[in-house]
């Protein structure tokens, strides 16, 4: 019950943020060089459509009314039409979300689970040669440009060894249903997931190493040992549980950073997700799609932050509900 009230309170706080993001978007459109109607309709739109856009967004009205009209359109879920395909942007984006979710979700789960485990293991022997090596390695991992890593993986596994497909989500002539389809997608996923999770892995190892070793130095861990809890239990009940708190927070907050990696990876592997969509939109100067994607991404990150907050509140009794 208190959790619900807390949730509503946090939700309330999200409104100004959402508004702020929309206003940024709006301001950028108006500050950008060139005609607003062209940006909203896309270059080379036919005059009739252009006129329709001018009407819809109230482009002849004073600025604040335009903002109102813009927000009105957004509230109706209208992100405009893609200039390239003339379809509603919202639909185009929605179509691409599952692929991105599949890719980013898999990589995220893989990286975070593995990262937390490796980090926790390293935290047991802080300052050891192994620990220093792993720390240095994870720093190097997240210093790799993800798109370059993708290319190198393609070079090795697709071009040289010919083990795995290098692009797309399915083989052109592959099966479209059943276990064969799933296997086909899985094969296509290996390389992009690998490159994406390798980069994130570095982050999570560092984070978990820092957080767990911090917790292991806490006096209540010493208490647990003095009570006689076996080390395995000290680790799981005391250290990991408490170390999860900062990890969860960062996980939620850095989702935006993670998504940028997804875009680049999808570009390299021609993965038919949001990232690829953005890339195509950039190439064809399809501004409505780029703006739509930015808004959707922003709201996703906000939502993730909200959920993180809730999770944190559920995990830590010290949070004031």
């Amino acid at each position: 019950m208190r959790l619900l009230r807390y949730f509503l309170f946090r939700l309330l706080q999200m409104f100004p943020i959402a508004l702020f993001i929309v206003v940024i978007n709006f301001a950028l459109i108006h500050m950008a060089p060139g005609d607003v109607s062209i940006l909203l309709a896309g270059e080379g739109a036919d005059p009739q459509y252009m006129e329709e856009v001018r009407q819809r967004y109230g482009l002849d009205l004073p600025l604040y009314q335009q903002l109102g009209a813009y927000i009105g359109q957004l509230l109706q879920g209208d992100l405009g039409l893609s200039f390239r395909t003339r379809e509603p942007v919202i639909g185009i984006i929605a179509e691409r979300i599952p692929a991105t979710l599949l890719l980013a979700g898999t990589a995220l789960v893989l990286a975070s689970v593995l990262g937390v485990i490796i980090g926790a293991v390293m935290a047991r022997r802080p300052g050891s040669a192994m620990d220093t090596a792993v720390t240095t390695l994870s720093i190097s991992l997240f210093s790799i440009p993800v798109f370059w890593l993708g290319l190198m993986l393609i070079l090795l596994f697709a071009v040289t060894l010919r083990w795995l497909p290098s692009s797309g989500m399915v083989s052109i002539a592959g099966p479209r249903e059943g276990i064969g389809y799933i296997l086909d997608v899985a094969m296509h996923m290996i390389l992009p997931v690998l490159s994406l999770s390798a980069i994130w892995l570095g982050q999570y190892v560092r984070l978990s190493r820092a957080s767990v070793s911090e917790t292991l130095a806490e006096p209540y861990v010493t208490t647990a040992r003095a009570i006689g809890f076996p080390e395995r239990r000290v680790m799981s009940r005391f250290a990991l549980r408490n170390a999860m708190l900062p990890i969860v927070t960062v996980l939620g907050l850095e989702l935006g950073l993670l998504l940028s990696g997804a875009v680049l990876t999808e570009t390299v592997f021609s993965w038919p997700g949001l990232g690829r969509l953005i890339y195509e939109a950039i190439l064809s100067r399809d501004t409505p799609v780029i703006m739509g994607a930015f808004l959707i991404m922003s709201f996703t990150v906000m939502l993730a932050a909200l959920l993180t907050d809730l999770l944190y509140a559920a995990l830590d009794p010290r949070v004031r509900l």
Binding site: I17, N25, L39, L253, S260, M297, V301, M302, A305
Partner: peptide, 15 residues
């Protein structure tokens, strides 16, 4: 909370 890479991308794409 703003995914900065996308914002930069948008700015550069627009300007």
């Amino acid at each position: 909370l703003i995914p900065t890479f996308f914002l930069i991308l948008l700015i550069v794409a627009l300007f």
